[in-house]
Amino acid sequence: MSKQQNIAITEALLIKYLAGEASPEEALAIDEWVEQTPDNNRLLQQYLQLWSHAGKEGAYTAPDLQRELQRLNIDTSLPTGSRKTPVLRTLFIRRAVAVVFMVALGAALLVFFQPWKTAKAPLMLALTSSNDILRDTLPDHSRVTLAPGSRLEHPASFDGADRTVQLQGEGYFSIAPNASKPFIVRTGTADIKVIGTAFNVKTNKDSVTIAMDNGAVLFFDNHDSVIVKGGMQSVYQVDTHRFSVTKMEGGNDYAYATKTFHFEATRLELVVSALEKAYNVKIVLENKKLADCTITTSFTDMPIQYVMEVITASLSLQYHMEGSTIYVQGNECN
């Protein structure tokens, strides 16, 4: 009697054989067992089909034991006593179908928990202006100027379908044109969508205000939208979700970014406010009545000293600077 004839062909041994873990003696014993009858050979082929099926990749679905048995032409309708299928065969097939479940479930969990398969959120950067005006260039070469106390969050690179940033406070944007990738400014209430233009956005808890320098934008929320063109101004009221669009009176509200001022019969009080914001200085009118003086003039990218010389000379006033504070003296205007 050969050594192989002393090896019992059990379910555990067949599993080792299919997994390639059987010893040479065990493999020879199974080979001899297969050659003994056509039924044994056919049974092994059916086991191999189940094993191959269990190793296939794919989305997880719960195994259907009856379907698997029927798919392999194994009769499941006969009473237990009349089946010709050996008990070993039935037990193995049922357990092999269970292997399908375990392998598929394990593969599904592996795919789910693999960190390299998970889409990563883009790296976000933040620009924050504290007490000074901040100027910077975004990854798409668009330029942004932030008023003091403002914050802008943007991705390190605009790799998605659009160029989206998040603004808190006030910022002036000069957008690099890109028709296939719109630029979107989110404010938390109403948003602005542009392709290429220059505009100013000012946000607070009650409203969002857009002042258009040139071009056009879509100003929208979840309920409504308006198109705002160059030379126009739009205000969105947070509580009512309403937009208003009016003609803009000059562009001095965003002169902090452009350093371009247009004053036409403008009260000195408003002139002072625009200059303080643009140059980050404090201007004190020592005679309060000077606030009602009016002036018509323009400046483009001039130093504050030059601007003050022109204004005070035009109104017959005097000024002096102490650090970042400018004091203006003189009689009230006629």
Rank of each mutant, 00 (worst) to 15 (best):
N73Q: 07
F263D: 03
L110E: 12
N280A: 03
S129A: 15
G171I: 03
M102P: 11
D159G: 08
R151I: 04
D132Y: 08
D159R: 13
F263Q: 07
P303L: 15
A19N: 07
N40S: 10
S77Y: 05
V235S: 05
K181S: 02
H320K: 10
G196C: 11
A119M: 11
D239Y: 12
I93E: 01
V87Q: 09
G196T: 09
T128F: 02
K205H: 10
G215R: 05
R83K: 14
D224W: 13
C293N: 00
L48C: 10
L48F: 04
V217P: 06
L146G: 02
M308W: 08
F243H: 09
A19R: 13
I195E: 01
D221G: 06
N41Q: 09
S82L: 13
P122F: 02
A255W: 08
G171Y: 03
I227T: 13
I7Q: 06
N222K: 13
G188E: 07
Q329Y: 14
T37D: 00
R95I: 00
V185P: 05
D162I: 03
Y254W: 10
W33K: 01
R42T: 04
Y172A: 12
A255G: 09
V208Q: 07
T300H: 09
N131F: 02
V235F: 04
L134C: 02
E309K: 14
Q66F: 01
S244E: 12
N178D: 05
Y306G: 07
S225C: 02
N178G: 03
S314T: 11
T258A: 10
V228A: 01
I192G: 07
V99W: 08
I74H: 12
T300D: 06
L270R: 15
K229H: 05
F199A: 02
E68A: 00
D64I: 01
A121E: 13
Q46F: 05
E269L: 07
A98Y: 08
E153M: 04
D132I: 11
G231P: 10
E11R: 12
F199P: 01
I184F: 06
V87P: 00
L270W: 10
K84R: 06
W33G: 00
I15P: 04
A176Q: 15
Q305L: 04
A59V: 13
Q4H: 08
I311S: 04
I326Q: 03
I175Y: 01
D162M: 00
L50Y: 10
P139A: 09
G160A: 07
L109Q: 11
Y17E: 07
P155D: 01
I15K: 15
G188V: 08
Q237E: 03
T10K: 15
Y236D: 09
L88A: 14
F220K: 11
A176L: 11
Q45A: 14
V185C: 00
S298C: 05
L290M: 09
D292Q: 13
S324G: 12
V97D: 00
E309L: 06
D301Y: 11
L285F: 08
S207I: 05
G81T: 05
A104P: 00
L88Q: 15
L28S: 05
G20C: 09
I295T: 13
I74Y: 07
P63R: 13
T197K: 07
T203N: 12
S174P: 06
E32H: 03
Y256E: 05
L110H: 14
I30S: 00
Y254M: 06
P24K: 03
E264F: 03
C333Q: 09
A27D: 01
